[in-house]
């Protein structure tokens, strides 16, 4: 019964903090409960730390984010996914290519940093945050310290954009669709994108999720491109044969996206009643609540002190250019 002893106390802890965050959000006007959950987790984690007995349960927060996303598929209208499909795909490809290009140029010529650190930052900014940094690091063999450095930079931007994006969205009076697509295209990790999207509105959250998951599915392709690029200098491994390339693509592909798509299909063939879909959405919201408490608890403000100013400038300017361009483009298209 090891699992009961280790994971359950932490899960209970996440749930209690989540419920307190929900209560706070219901009392304080214009505070979204998902943002309240992250802030409360962040305060507890940085002031008192995570209690030892809760550690392994808190560590499951990424699982709950993914469960929430899979189940959220039930509330997604298939016609929306299909109608926007080709435009979203084009926007995602444009964003990924543009982000990699801009960050690589800035990291090489404007604020010179180590080439591979620049590549890790480009991957983290263009695809899906820390998981992209790790996937690309595996494909191009990078020193451990560079991975930690790039991951910390990406996490810093995750923590900041999570709060700044909804503020910008409201200040500019963006529609739910425009905000959701923009956040899904230009923010980094899946957790903060989901939180910022749903903090803005339900519809914005759904758009942000669709766009972000499309972007995440490019992780393998970008990792292979980088491994081929660096192969000439180091060693040819991941992309040395077609079979290896496909198996690498599959191994890096975020499989929970398939669960999300499966759920979209099941919900849209009409076997679920409205009340069942509402129940699934409620379940998804509970999963997000505990996931975001865990996300907040694991943001370590101390770790951001070790980041140098150059990587921060590279990502800040790169993100500024890409986010502004994409916002103009999305506003024109939708």
């Amino acid at each position: 019964m090891k699992m009961k002893q280790t994971v359950l106390p932490g899960l209970f802890f996440l749930l209690v903090v989540g419920i307190i965050a929900r209560l706070i959000a219901s009392v304080v006007p214009s505070v979204n409960y998902l943002i309240a959950a992250i802030v409360l987790g962040l305060v507890i984690g940085n002031v008192w730390g995570i209690p030892n007995w809760a550690r392994s349960g808190v560590g499951t927060h990424k699982l709950w984010l993914k469960v929430g996303i899979v189940v959220m598929g039930a509330g997604m209208a298939l016609d929306r996914v299909i109608t926007a499909g080709s435009t979203v795909l084009l926007l995602v490809v444009t964003t990924v290519v543009m982000t990699i290009g801009v960050i690589e140029l800035l990291a090489r010529f404007v604020f010179p940093i180590h080439q591979k650190t620049g590549s890790l930052l480009a991957a983290g900014s263009s695809i899906c945050g820390v998981s992209a940094v790790i996937a690309i690091a595996e494909s191009i063999s990078v020193r451990e310290s560079r991975i930690a450095y790039a991951a910390a930079t990406v996490l810093l931007f995750d923590a900041v954009t999570l709060f700044v994006y909804p503020i910008i969205g409201h200040a500019l009076g963006l529609s739910d669709t425009v905000f959701g697509i923009w956040a899904g295209l230009t923010m980094f990790s899946t957790g903060p994108v989901t939180a910022a999207g749903f903090a803005f509105s339900e519809a914005a959250g759904q758009w942000a999720l669709i766009v972000k998951l499309t972007r995440n599915s490019f992780i393998g392709l970008v990792a292979i491109t980088y491994s081929v690029y660096y192969a000439g200098r180091v060693n040819a491994d991941a992309a040395s044969s077609v079979y290896q390339a496909w198996s690498f693509l599959w191994s890096t592909f975020p499989k929970f996206i398939l669960g999300f798509l499966g759920m979209v299909l099941v919900a849209n063939i009409g076997i679920l009643s409205d009340s069942q879909i509402t129940s699934l959405e409620n379940m998804s919201n509970w999963a997000f609540l505990i996931a975001f408490v865990g996300l907040g608890l694991e943001i370590k403000l101390d770790e951001f002190r070790s980041i140098g100013y150059r990587p921060v400038l590279v990502v800040l300017i790169g993100m500024g250019i890409v986010a502004t361009t994409m916002l103009l483009l999305v506003r024109t298209l939708f």
Partner: peptide, 12 residues
Amino acid sequence: DRKAVCLGFLTL
């Protein structure tokens, strides 16, 4: 990722 898909469909 696989755990998430299992739990998601178990909920369904």
